[in-house]
Design a protein around this nucleic acid. Structure first.
Length: 133
RNA sequence: UAAGUAAAUCGCCUUAUCGCUCUGAAUUCAUUUCAGGGAGGAAAGUCCGAACACCGUAGUGCAAACAUAGUGGCUAACAGCCACCAGCCGUGAGGUUAGGAAAAGUGCAACAGAAAGUAUGUACAGGUCAUGCUGUAGUGAAACCAGGUAAACUCUAUGUGGUGCAAUGUCAUGUAUACCAACGUUUGAGCGCGGCACGUGCGAUUGUUGGAGGGUAGGCAGCUAGAAUGUAUUGGUAACAAUGCAUCCAGAUAAAUGAUAAGGGCUUUUUAAUUUUUAAUUGAAGGGUACAGAAUUCGGCUUAUAGAUUUACUUAUAUA
RNA sequence: GCCGGUGUAGCUCAGGGGUAGAGCGUUUCCUUGGUAAGGAAGAGGCCACGGGUUCAAUUCCCGUCAUUGGCU
C-alpha cells in the first residue's frame, strides 16, 4: 500500500455512510473519534474506505473546517501504512474531529497514531474471542 | 514638520521531499508515465439587478402587496454609477441626504400649558370715546402660519407573473396498478403555480383527492469563451462607449487547489555597539505577518481585513 | 447552494410611537407544632447589537450578529 489518498480510497456512498453511523462501532482518542464497520470487499477499490469530517457546530468558518480536514487527511495518508498494510478484511472508516480548538499538524498526527493503535488492539481482541469460542 | 481629506494599487516570496484534482497524449485487464492548468478582493452576506431553465407565452377586469422618488445622463438591467442643483455637517480639502405631494381627504402630538388646530385666556405696554386691533411675557419640539408630521394612513408618477441549477433534461437501478377513506364518470369529481371573477386547457378501460406505506438517492448533460480579461487609440467634464491588437484564466461533489522542513522579505519590542546624538546604522534575542475558501454564471451594493505603496489636495506652524 | 421565520425578567410569552407588563420561578414577612398550599410586600430589563427618521423608537426604516425551519 502506498502513501496515497485518492478518489478510490474516499468514503463516498451515502448509503454506506448512513449504515456506518447507525450500525458502526467507534474508538476515540481525543480530539479524534473514529467510527468503523466491516464491509464486503469490492474488486475495483482498495480494502479500506475512509472519510473525514469536522462539525459545523464547533467551527463556524469554512476556512477552519477545510484546514482541519486537510491536516487529518495528511495524517491519515502518512500513517496508514504502518497499521493497515497487512489487513485482510475490508472496512469503512469515518474520522471525526470532536475538539473545540484549532490543532497543529503534530497534535493531529499523535492523536491519529493513538487512534489507530486503539483500533488494532480492538481488532485483535475480537479475533481472539472468535478463536476461543 | 504635524494633523487630516479623497482616489487608486498590492496584500508575502524561494527551494526540497511527500501528496490531491482537472485536461491532453501514450499505454493497460486493473493502471502507470509524461506535459500543462488549479481560490478571492471580498470567493462572504444573499441585499438589489440580469442571463439561463421550467411552470398554462402569464390574456382581460377588480383588489391587494412590494419597490423606487431633485434634474439630466450612463448601462443589458438596477435600489448601482457619473455630473449638476438644493438642504445639513466640517476652519478647509470634502462628507452626507428614502430630496415628489400637507391648497384632495383621514389621523396623530405624552408631559407642560388658558389653549395642540372648530384657537385666542391672563398680565403689561401701545392705540381707540370704547371694543375689535398691535406688540411683549409665560408652556412646549411645535402656539395661526392655508403651522408640523407622509421611515402615519393616503395621493401622484413609474415599475413588478411565479419559482429557482436541490431549476431542468437524460441514462441506469428499483418497486406497489398493494391497503384504507371521501367524491365522481359527460347534467363534470376535480386538477393545471402565487388573491378573486371571467376566459382557457386537461379530465375517467389503469378517475381525482387525502391518509398510510414501498423503491431509488448513482452516472452524464446543464458546467464554464464570457454584457470576459489585458493593452493602445478615439469620442465624452465624467460614468461610459466605439475600434484595433493580444490572451484563454478553477471546475470539486463527505466536496481538489495541500502537508512538512529550511531559508529570506516586511513590521515591531527589548538590548548592545558606533556615529554626523529631538536621530541614523549595524549586531543579537523575542513577537507579529490580516480578513477569509469557489459550488450555474455575470453587473452592483453591504460587511470583514495585519500591514505596505502611490497620486492629488486641505489646515496649522516654521523658514525663504 | 436557494428561500423563509424569531430575538423583550432566571424560564414561557404579551405589548407595536409618549414611565415596559403577565404567568411560573426567586427574596422577605404572615399563616402552621412543622412543611406544602394560601395571603401580603419586594427585587430582577441598555427590549440581541450598530446606525438613521422623529420633539420622543422596545415599536418605523437600514445594516450586522445569533438562533431556528423548509426545498434534495
Amino acid at each position: 500500500m502506498d502513501r496515497t489518498y485518492n478518489k478510490h480510497e474516499k468514503l463516498k456512498s451515502k448509503k454506506l455512510i448512513d449504515k456506518l453511523f447507525t450500525e458502526g462501532q467507534s474508538v476515540s482518542a481525543y480530539p479524534l473519534r473514529m467510527v468503523y464497520i466491516e464491509t464486503t470487499p469490492q474488486n475495483t477499490d482498495g480494502p479500506i474506505k475512509t472519510g473525514v469530517s469536522v462539525s459545523k457546530k464547533h467551527f463556524k468558518k469554512a476556512v477552519d473546517r477545510i484546514r482541519i480536514k486537510r491536516l487529518m487527511r495528511e495524517a491519515y495518508r502518512l500513517n496508514k501504512t504502518t497499521y493497515f498494510n497487512n489487513i485482510t478484511t475490508s472496512y469503512a472508516f469515518m474520522i471525526l474531529y470532536i475538539g473545540n480548538n484549532k490543532p497543529t499538524y503534530n497534535h493531529v498526527e499523535q492523536s491519529m497514531n493513538k487512534l489507530f493503535k486503539k483500533f488494532t488492539n480492538a481488532m485483535h481482541k475480537e479475533t481472539n474471542n472468535e478463536k476461543n469460542t
